[in-house]
């Protein structure tokens, strides 16, 4: 029983309180680049969660056979192979989406979140725990992507998943789309605001003033 509760905690902790994006500074690159619409954000979240969970499972299974010195290369090769599979599946069944995501699916390979979790967690834990942790982190990442993707698409185009929510002026409605939301700077501002919101709700996450206690640069991968 204790073991199940443990797994449950491993799964839910990364959702908000240990969120990979807003707290661990992992996987930022794709978190901003693909969030101009909710659909791309969803596809990206799903791809990353699948890759992360499978990679954690594989690496955790073979963890006793990986020599310490070349572990990074092995982990990257496992991840890259999984990413190639996902990329080919997307190209085969979702051509439009694959074009919209461009190189960002391939870039899951170097997503710091995947390597960060396999390196920090999967390497030292049994497959079930490792995959639970990976799934939790994947979902936490997805949560951030979906929130930002929804805000950007709603305010930028007045739509959600392509359906009109706020009728725009061009189509005879009242809403003037803020195309600024679709540009790069808005992504930064929104993520900054999100981090601020999360840390105001959970004050224990707030960082100390930088000049008094510099944090160790965790998650620099």
């Amino acid at each position: 029983m204790a073991r199940r509760i443990d797994l449950w905690a491993t799964l839910t902790a990364p959702l908000v309180s240990q969120n990979p994006v807003t707290l661990q500074i992992l996987g930022l690159c794709s978190a901003l680049a693909v969030t101009t619409s909710l659909a791309t954000a969803l596809t990206m979240s799903a791809s990353l969660t699948v890759v992360l969970t499978l990679a954690a499972g594989v690496i955790s299974t073979i963890r006793r056979f990986i020599p310490e010195t070349i572990r990074l290369i092995i982990q990257i090769i496992v991840i890259a192979s999984l990413v190639i599979v996902i990329d080919q599946v997307l190209q085969a069944y979702f051509v439009e989406m694959s074009r919209a995501l461009s190189v960002f699916v391939s870039l899951i390979t170097t997503n710091c979140l995947v390597l960060g979790r396999t390196e920090a967690y999967a390497r030292h834990h049994r497959p079930v725990a490792a995959m639970t942790d990976a799934l939790g982190n994947g979902l936490g990442y997805s949560l951030v992507l979906i929130v930002i993707g929804a805000i950007r698409e709603l305010l930028g185009k007045g739509e959600l998943l392509g359906f009109v929510v706020l009728p725009s002026v061009d189509a005879g409605g009242w809403y003037t789309p803020m195309s600024f939301m679709l540009l790069a700077p808005a992504g930064f501002f929104l993520l900054g605001a999100l981090v601020w919101a999360v840390r105001s709700l959970l004050p224990e996450q707030a960082e100390d003033a930088e000049f008094s206690s510099p944090l160790p640069s965790e998650g620099a991968e």
């Binding site: 900054g192 601020w196 999360v198 003033a209 944090l215």
Partner: peptide, 29 residues
């Protein structure tokens, strides 16, 4: 330079860095 700024606790570190990067991004745009 942020060492001299009195930021809200939640914005310190990561939050304000994103805002700074956003402002730089505006400039590069």
């Amino acid at each position: 330079r942020l060492a001299y700024a009195n930021l809200p606790a939640g914005l310190r570190g990561l939050g304000i860095t994103f805002v700074l990067a956003g402002l730089m991004s505006l400039g590069f745009a």
